[in-house]
């Protein structure tokens, strides 16, 4: 996408520069009209319509796959996250675990995050795991994430939420499935 955009940019600008420098011959009315139509219809209609069609043909299915649709085969882990000025209240409804500013998830399994806010609008974002989703008071949005590899991922609030916004961060620790079970047990035991 970026490559295509760059090529388009360079092409359009070069054409302009060339048009600025060239010394055209005298055009007859008819010739000029043909040149003009070629530019306007070719450049102004065909080019954007084709590009947009291609983009959407790729983009909409990708977006569709990222939605939290019911999965046929595997179990989805559910985690509730409530944002507050300026921290993240994380709870696991199945096991009753509550955490602050950190999430633990199994790697390789889809996780559904049920996001809401207690005060102003925040936005949940872990750049390396996927897109962001806003957290609104009075509503619950569901974001599906999946960490393919175990590891530590950094997340932050992506919607301006007041003076603490810059420091409203959290971490996501993705465990290998067996470790996750152990962690779950340990954390439940602590309660």
């Amino acid at each position: 996408m970026v490559g295509f955009a760059t090529v388009t940019l360079i092409a359009v600008v070069s054409l302009w520069l060339y048009a600025l420098r060239r010394r055209p011959r005298q055009w007859s009315q008819e010739q000029a009209r043909r040149v003009h139509n070629r530019w306007i219809i070719g450049g102004g209609l065909v080019l954007p319509v084709t590009s947009i069609t291609l983009l959407l043909a790729f983009g909409i299915p990708i977006g569709h796959r990222m939605l939290p649709l019911p999965l046929a085969d595997s179990e989805v882990v559910r985690i509730d996250v409530t944002a507050r000025q300026w921290w993240w209240d994380v709870s696991y409804p199945d096991s009753g675990i509550r955490l602050r500013d950190e999430l633990h998830i199994p790697a390789g399994t889809p996780v559904d995050l049920h996001l809401t806010s207690d005060d102003v609008i925040h936005s949940f974002w872990v750049p390396r795991l996927g897109g962001k989703l806003d957290m609104l008071p009075g509503r619950t949005n569901v974001l599906r994430l999946q960490a393919d590899e175990p590891g530590l991922y950094h997340g932050q609030c992506a919607e301006f939420c007041g003076i603490g916004h810059a420091h409203m961060k959290f971490t996501v620790r993705a465990h290998a499935p067996s470790e996750y079970a152990a962690w779950l047990e340990g954390a439940t035991g602590d309660e």
């Binding site: 054409l15 302009w16 048009a19 060239r22 055209p24 000029a32 040149v35 530019w39 070719g42 102004g44």
Partner: peptide, 9 residues
């Protein structure tokens, strides 16, 4: 492209 065509001719 209309601007471009204007410059062109």
């Amino acid at each position: 492209f209309a601007w471009l065509a204007t410059l062109w001719t």
